[in-house]
Design a protein around this nucleic acid. Structure first.
Lengths: 227, 227
DNA sequence: GCGGATTTCAAACGAACGTTTGAATGATAG
DNA sequence: CTATCATTCAAACGTTCGTTTGAAATCCGC
């Protein structure tokens, strides 16, 4: 098999993955059928089973194509920050930005399908099907451990269980923002045009999340200066 | 039709609704089949179509059974607060608590299926099927308008578009928290026992959300005293 | 340009889907 | 008790699902 053959293979696989990404996002994993999917990709019905083995394996491949790279990027960014800090503590907001940056930058990629993937990803977090949740969980495991440790170092005074809850809330905020559809907006009035500006969105998300993460502990009085 | 007949009717309908709530939560709307559903409810396969008309109508009924009451409760709580304040401005946190309280209290109802419903609800926010999103959106519309107006009054200095984004983030935080499964936790270490204590959870969520809502505007320097 | 491997294709598989049907069963009012 | 209605039931409807098959087409090293 030479280069041209590899190109052809990946070409078919890529078209299937692109169509799957789009249709899974629009109709869900069960709602998007193999016939829809192969029709949109312009390939034969049997191609999915030939190249990926099964529909479930295709779902996994759709996530793996982008998610592994995304989490690797997250960790790399975090390690860059830690190296630059040279032993000094990182600010919580910097860690937050390292985590959300990779996924937000993907939002801007409306041509390459990155935007589609982020919406699919946002939905997958609350996916009922157990195998998919397990898949996502295992793909996030390493990055999650790494970031949790970073937050513990940055916020040594924050009780562990409180931190875990706040990370949970932050993750929800991000997940929902990624999943948000432009067709339905529960809160009317949002300007859709800056929804895709990753820089603005990152600033807004980082401000919201940092404030939430650093919120005074319930039941305590706490004077704090935020800049 | 006398009382006993009515009882029998609602009894069958209730069993179907309970089973649907549970199975939709576990397997999604497409993943839960009529045969699964009627088997779990202990009723005949045709009962759903007889009593509700179709599977789609059943889905709507599942939401309507609890969601209408929940949003009515939210609005009532908000109006009670406004009446008590007698013209004075409400604190953002009080408004937040009025909004999240109803759904969090439902979490504690593990016997009556309230907990199941909140998880289903959390997932429905990111449901790909358009009719379901529309249904949810329209069921929330009134309450959403009401609360948005309350926040505008409570935070007159906060730019409208910034407010809309922060409401969006807050909604995501709540949605994800409601949807959270105990089977998979991306952030290890959470103690599952206090996950169902609505009071503790409300305190934690309210602290996080208020801080996020009141976060200093990006690009500005802002000294703030949080109590 | 031939031979072996890879990929595509149309067709069909059995299983499961939501829904409909018409008869059987139950309860109610006169 | 009987006529009438609402409800339940087993069975079947046509459709669509994911997957498999074996032959045709394409590609590539030699």
């Amino acid at each position: 098999m030479n280069l041209r053959a590899i190109k052809a293979v990946t070409e078919t696989q890529t078209r299937i993955l692109d169509a799957a990404e789009d249709l899974f996002m629009q109709h869900g994993f069960e709602g998007a059928s193999m016939r829809m999917l192969t029709a949109q990709a312009g390939v034969n019905l049997a191609a999915v089973n030939y190249h990926f083995g099964s529909k479930d394996a295709l779902i996994e491949a759709v996530f793996r194509r982008r998610l592994d790279a995304m989490n690797t990027e997250r960790i790399a960014e975090l390690e860059r920050l830690e190296k630059d800090a040279a032993g000094k503590a990182l600010s919580p907001e910097a860690i937050i930005r390292a985590f959300i940056g990779a996924s937000l930058r993907m939002i801007e990629d409306t041509r390459g399908g990155g935007r589609t993937f982020t919406r699919l990803l946002g939905r997958a977090y609350t996916e009922p099907a157990k195998p998919i949740r397990q898949l996502i969980g295992q793909m996030y495991a390493t990055a999650m451990e790494r970031f949790k440790a970073a937050f513990v170092r940055a916020l040594p005074e924050l009780p562990k269980d409180e931190l875990v809850w706040r990370l949970h809330f932050m993750f929800g905020t991000l997940a929902y923002t990624l999943a948000a559809t432009d067709t339905v907006q529960l809160i009317a009035g949002a300007k859709p045009e800056d929804r895709y500006d990753a820089r603005v969105l990152e600033d807004r998300l980082a401000a919201f999340m940092s404030a939430g993460l650093l919120a005074p502990l319930a039941g305590t009085v706490n004077v704090r200066i935020a800049a």
